[in-house]
Design a binder for these strands. Structure first.
Lengths: 231, 231, 231, 231
DNA sequence: CATGAATGAGACTTCATTCAT
DNA sequence: AATGAATGAAGTCTCATTCAT
């Protein structure tokens, strides 16, 4: 097509897989895996049909690569954030959940939730991978914090697993929403994700707390997300 | 094939649309709309490919019929349940959310959430319908109760919309889960939906309440769901 | 397309596999398996692309069906012909080879040799099948007759396997020829297959015989083949 | 990759066309022209895809080059061998057919027969070339010897063309066999090509001879082929 | 000369939909 | 009303060929 200047070829080649993953994520999340044509992915990445198959041997492998890629990135970041922190369980949970989830919510990676929900049953290998890499790791991390909060008398003695779900599931849900109904409704019912994340974490922590609820301050909405990953 | 007596034939014919909807729901939820073949739906409903098209003019119309059918049923039930009730906002919310959602969670209709999440962006007409018929009606109903709880000094003055989401989104989420990851994982990580529903509602209500948390009793898990919907 | 008269549908359906096999044989022999498009086979059989796949699940299965079908037919006929015969080994070989091979040579089934030669290395399962069903059965039959001729002092004591090959390989070869070079050359070099078969069998039998060659009559060319199988 | 000294590079470059032809012959014979990828040929010859196209403008031209190359070589050798010979027709035929064919049978060039059989109908230009260069030249040479044998009272007065075919076709056939079924069967049915060639020529010459068959000696199997052409 | 990334025509195969029975 | 044979548009993937490096 267009004449490529020297030495750009190499740079192009190394960036291809990433560009294809981005395109694939966007389209798979939007239209679903089965309804997305391989050629559309290629076109969105700016290459031809054949080139896609130079990097991924099949559409299905592309799907798996998308999920693996975006998950490993995010999970690593989250774990790191939790590692170097000390403070009360409440503070720790607020910090991790609000900062990390707000960032995730605003990034394309949030679409992976929809992708997994939608496609696991058709590609069972994804299930094991996702459960091991994401569900267990995140759940363990948060569960440990909640348990610590209970042990230290900060939280009431509730079922830890359920509490973690009460905290996390709505956050997953608004990521799903952003890429399904939220992408269709004409902005009049526009759930404000960032504000909700803060309020929700605050509310559940209030429910967990042994302190009287009045003592809990109104949650601040986080500022403009520090890292934009929109294409 | 087998000789059917005349009366049964009539009954069969009248049940066809319903049987087709059930089959379509099951398969669309399991494999996604695009990955489900029309013939599979027909086979699961015990009829031939051609017969499906006698009742629904296209696969897409079948999808819409599935969503419309299962939604209208459930929403009507929920609204009715709320109408004839009086008591505190807390009690009302517990009653509606726990009873109604537990029942929904155990019925095939729970799959509609996955279906909508998955397919709205491909069939935008679903968005408006679903938002109008389900999201708004349910949200309004619950929102009114929460606001009343605030006005009567039962709840702290939080953002009503957010509170409703904190209550409801995890419940939607476990319905999604049951039909995606939950249908794949080998039972070791088997989130107990019914127990979670009760605990979650209790936890969020505790977070909303102005009363000291100790005053809130441990939530009871509802008994065996009173209505079986297995085909 | 054209309106089909009643009750013809059923007849059509039962004839389809056979019609498809005929079309596939013709094209696979002519152009080779890889160079023949599935759609061409369908078109030659008078159906659409999709219909082909109603009867054979893949192009490869169609190939195997072609080989199996045309082989089993012919081999059975040959064995039957040999069974009810008594006379000298010379007469028996003349009878079987000339009659049966002339008929085969004039039928589309002769193309199967080219097909097997051409495709066996790409589809190894064909090798075992063909060797078992055709090579061994034919070789055993002829080998037994030659050995009997030697035992009864009619033939010289030669290597039986080699003698069978000397008899048979040229006959295979002219079948191959008819469907390769013979189908291209502009009729000036037109090996007369039927005449050659007779002369060749006669010549090799003369070489095998212990009698003086003068005693061997000139072979008669068989008349018009009694069974035409051209479509 | 590895550093090649300048002299070797030159030698390499000049050998390229030959190496490509060898690779192409091997693969075309094994898998057929259509089923062989240009890249496979290049890889077997130890060069990259692009390099192949430096020497041959298309896959089809490569095919023609392969056939032309291997044919011209062999035919020239055969004619030369026949030229400087005198003796009886029987001796001459034995000499030429057994020596020359045994050598051919053991060389990769034997594969050309399969290639021609397989591909003539797709590339009609090959037909004329092959017929002119191989069929006619070989047939004329042998036909002249047979006719001479008849004229001198050594052979019975048979149809010369047919006799030549009886002599030659089995030899062609075992070359085909070696590269098709013979390359698949698990060595239990392993036609011994060299022994067969000798026996077959002997047998047909016996059939042609006017002398009593007892006078014909048992044919010797030629020794180890004098010319190895394995790559 | 040599490479191998890129292309896109083309092949196999699937499946929604129709329609004669 | 019900069937299922038939169709052909459309999708996945391959591979001959080109061309910038």
């Amino acid at each position: 097509m267009q004449t490529t200047d020297p030495a750009q070829r190499r740079r192009r080649k190394e960036a291809r897989p990433q560009e294809l993953l981005e395109a694939a994520l966007a389209l798979f999340v939007q239209k679903g895996f089965a309804a997305t044509r391989a050629e559309e992915v290629a076109a969105l990445a700016g290459v031809s049909k054949g080139t896609l198959y130079l990097y991924y041997p099949s559409k299905e492998e592309l799907l798996k690569a998308v999920i693996a890629h975006y998950l490993s990135d995010r999970i690593a970041e989250g774990a790191a954030q939790a590692a170097g922190f000390n403070g009360s369980a409440t503070d720790l949970l607020q910090s991790i959940l609000i900062d990390w989830w707000t960032q995730l919510y605003d990034s394309p990676a949030a679409g992976v939730f929809k992708l997994v929900i939608t496609e696991v049953r058709n590609f069972p290998e994804i299930a094991g991978f996702y459960h091991r890499e994401v569900v267990e790791r995140a759940h363990d991390l948060l569960g440990r914090i909640v348990r610590q909060g209970i042990d230290q008398g900060e939280f009431r003695p509730v079922d830890v697993d359920h509490a973690v779900h009460s905290l996390v599931l709505p956050l997953v849900m608004i990521c799903l929403h952003r890429h399904s109904l939220g992408a269709c409704t004409p902005a009049d019912w526009h759930l404000d994700g960032r504000a909700f994340i803060a309020q929700h974490v605050h509310l559940v922590l209030a429910g967990l707390s042994v302190r009287p609820p009045q003592a809990l301050a109104t949650p601040p909405v986080p500022p403009i997300p520090p890292r934009s990953t929109a294409p």
